[in-house]
């Protein structure tokens, strides 16, 4: 299978989610190729899982004060702070048949590629089911998957560094913290630069190597149609009725 690779691009949160969805629609309609995408977020943003309560999971007032976007993903999973400089986000979007019906196995497979990427950086990591990658018991990468219209989409983070103060924008449930004997989000996380200095380009290169078993990758951009559809879809991600609907 030949994949399109969308090289790292920086967008605001609503647009990042809209691009993932526009590409997934294109794959569904047979007009977009299977795609691997790397991206980052500016301004910083908190994304929440589609089943979470925004006001319970996020200090929304502080986000507003700091100019941090709050958006609701179409995927489940937990709230994430996406720092403009501290994270590379990836997406893998392809016909569902590419990864089969087993959701747990496909998390393990794709997280395995990210683990290999970390290995290229000299960082030994491991898969923590259901959807995390850890180093020394702390999460360095989390991911979320959806399967709609016969299309598989997994997006996930790789932390380059983290800003403990910004992580305090998240309000994890005490039950979640105590399950991991953590006092705050900072006790749960680690990052590439906690282990070694690494430029963003080095990490991107490692991710490319890690994801190579997927197949041949050809660098390309979004099509005009995908960009136009993403602009349209971004409006729904910007809509408070969606972000705060629960």
């Amino acid at each position: 299978m030949i994949w399109r690779l969308l090289p790292l691009a920086t967008e605001r949160g609503a647009m990042n989610m809209a691009i993932d969805e526009a590409v997934a629609e294109g794959v569904r309609d047979g007009i977009s190729p299977p795609t691997v995408r790397f991206y980052s977020w500016s301004p910083g943003a908190v994304s929440i899982g589609c089943f979470q309560s925004a006001r319970e999971e996020v200090d929304v007032d502080a986000c507003t004060r700091l100019g941090v976007d709050v958006i609701r993903r179409r995927t489940g999973g937990g709230a994430v702070y996406h720092d403009p400089d501290g994270e590379i986000t990836y997406s893998v979007i392809a016909p569902e048949a590419t990864f089969g019906n087993d959701i747990h196995a496909s998390y393990r497979l794709i997280c395995g590629y990210i683990i290999d990427a970390l290995g290229h950086l000299g960082i030994p990591s491991e898969f923590r089911p259901i959807n995390d990658i850890t180093v020394g018991g702390k999460k360095i990468s989390g991911s979320a998957q959806t399967r709609r219209g016969g299309v598989f989409l997994q997006h996930g983070t790789l932390l380059l560094s983290f800003d403990a103060e910004r992580m305090s924008l998240l309000r994890p449930s005490p039950a979640k913290l105590s399950a991991r004997s953590a006092r705050g989000v900072e006790d749960l996380l680690t990052s590439v630069r906690s282990y070694r200095s690494a430029s963003r380009d080095e990490v991107l290169d490692a991710l490319r190597k890690g994801l190579r078993p997927l197949g041949e990758m050809r660098d390309a951009g979004l099509t005009i149609e995908e960009r136009a559809r993403a602009n349209e879809l971004a409006l729904s991600y910007d809509d408070d009725a969606w972000t705060f609907f629960r």
């Binding site: 089943f51 319970e56 709230a79």
Partner: peptide, 12 residues
Amino acid sequence: VRLTGDFFLHPE
């Protein structure tokens, strides 16, 4: 009844 959390349901 309202369910919230960081779980996954397919389809969402």
